[in-house]
Design a protein around this nucleic acid. Structure first.
Lengths: 337, 337
DNA sequence: TTGAAAGCGCTAACAT
DNA sequence: ATGTTAGCGCTTTCAA
């Protein structure tokens, strides 16, 4: 079943079929619909290898996800896949560990799969021009930006929330409820990732409200996973330093933190309020429902694809999109006393 | 940079270069190493599109996931991706809704991407030979088998748990704790999916222990998602029919059910025990930890790939692998009073 | 053991 | 608006 069969079946030439298939303008409506009918009837599917060969490029978009197992990414991946295939492209997914370098992974993927473009999901923030030089295709950072790197703004695209501002907002919500002793649970204060950025937001909120930063209330887990978050929260409890509220940099970690607080005999929110950022489905079903700032996961994925394809198809240059979060007022935050 | 350049650079014909590149036997050592040297020097990388075109096949394995957003699948997808790329193949992921037909989706993917093989994750159980006829590549069903269909056992492969037996085991755990009024939360009793199978296990366990089946205690949600599970549990509570334990067919649904029970004023496990099947990470962090039968998600993904590649590379024929679950004794099950 | 040449299915000039 | 045709880079007969 080739383009020839379709051509013969609809009584036109192969090039006409090709034109129809590629939405070229100069085809009469009559012929167009006739060809389309044949395509339907014959269940014709174009041979991508042949297409790619003659166009000397593939229709493949790479998605490198750093931090396997983070449920926040699941919805984004889904949205990206949808958008990519809807646009007639193919997505190849590559998941790497937090320790791995997503730029290297992306570059290698780009070569071996002849990628047209690349989406980086959950990466680091400290790229230098030298590092990205290896990447000779358009790429967009999804859910993060190059805040700590020296990349020129027009060397890449991004779609993300304002991590620091949103973290500040989250902490401020706690402050407004009268909390002063606010702990924070994060991966690291200096990992050049979303963790560090949100930590800055935490510090900023405290500073703006005249609350001194207490290093004892900063719990670094060294990882984004739930087990580490659980342990980190336990350590926070063990040191007997009082805190009435906890800001967690990610929903998944917050779920584990809630468990640790509970196991440590703290009631939420009576003894300890907790707020996070991300908004994964699952945290709707914690007891109480986690109060969190929801990142619009689906639209972030879609937007990342839109930006990327605009670059790939040269409709537009690079751009940076900031999306905002929506507060989900769960039951995990209460006024102090 | 094509095979021609390599040929000219090493002073041989393109066909000889091709032979070297494909490890064909009849090439002299001298020529072989000369060609290889040129390849190195010129940084030549074969054009996969051209290769695929002429061989009319790719190195692509398809993964069709039915039921987007089920966290149980995340770990499996990860394992599949790892194994596939480790074996030098490319995975293309396609996620579809529960309403969609994974066989159709798989067949269309197979043609458009020239798949070598296909893995179906979370599909239906009622394929007929006619339906699978469209699929002319090896495929393996992951996490389910064709229990309700008429497929010949050697027409496909599978890796799954014994859903009915495991469900029976789960319910039996409740019975052993003295529970008699055991409700069940599931998608449907007759959807030809894992839901129906596990429902049979539930019925079987009740029957074996002389407990009459009470239709009022069978809550069908019509979906696998958490919102539906929450609603379903609420309806169960509203009808005022007493039950002291709840068997939920999936961890993700159980998390939502726990929330609904809590919101309905039931303490877990004091007022109601709950047990499920799947073993997602998240359910470790519910309060109390969910008692569940863990499916070995990673090894199921790896095994699925192993089986598939054995078929693709004709090392072995089809086979069916049954894996067993491991009980995670959380705190959600307690003896009756 | 090596080379010449015929396609694989498609797109895009170029011609009509 | 539609058809003819020359490749895209590679593998694989078939000949030498």
């Amino acid at each position: 079943m080739t383009i020839r069969d379709v051509a013969e079946h609809s009584g036109v030439s192969v090039s006409t079929v090709s034109r129809v298939l590629n939405n070229h303008p100069d085809v009469s409506e009559a012929v167009r619909s006739r060809v389309l009918a044949s395509v339907q009837e014959l269940h014709y599917v174009p041979n991508n290898s042949a297409r790619d060969l003659v166009r000397s490029q593939s229709d493949t978009i790479g998605l490198v996800v750093r931090g396997v197992g983070n449920p926040f990414f699941s919805a984004v991946i889904r949205a990206v896949e949808q958008s990519v295939s809807q646009a007639g492209y193919t997505m190849v997914l590559h998941q790497i560990n937090t320790e791995d370098n997503e730029l290297l992974a992306g570059a290698s993927l780009a070569r071996s799969k002849k990628l047209r473009g690349l989406i980086l999901l959950g990466g680091c923030f400290d790229y230098t021009p030298e590092q990205t030089a290896a990447l000779d295709i358009p790429f967009v950072c999804c859910s993060f930006t190059n805040s700590f790197g020296s990349l020129n703004k027009d060397a890449y695209s991004s779609v993300s929330i304002d991590d620091q501002a949103e973290a500040r907002r989250a902490v401020e919500i706690l402050v407004r409820q009268g909390h002063q002793k606010i702990a924070v649970l994060l991966d690291s204060t200096h990992d050049h990732s979303v963790s560090e950025l949100r930590y800055h937001g935490y510090c900023q909120a405290l500073a703006e409200h005249g609350i001194p930063l207490d290093p004892d209330l900063v719990a670094e887990t060294g990882d984004f996973d739930m087990a580490a978050a659980y342990e980190g929260t336990c350590r926070l409890l063990e040191q007997k330093k009082e805190f009435t509220a906890l800001f967690v940099i990610a929903d998944s970690m917050a779920v584990a933190a809630m468990k640790a607080l509970h196991d440590g005999g703290r009631r939420i929110p009576e003894d300890c309020s907790i707020i996070a950022i991300d908004g994964i489905d699952m945290s709707t079903y914690t007891v109480p429902t986690l109060t969190t700032l929801i990142q619009p996961q689906e639209s972030m994925g879609e937007e990342a694809v839109r930006i990327l394809l605009d670059m790939v198809e040269e409709r537009a240059g690079n751009r940076h999109v900031r999306v905002s979060t929506a507060l989900r007022a769960g039951g995990s935050v209460a006024p102090l006393n």
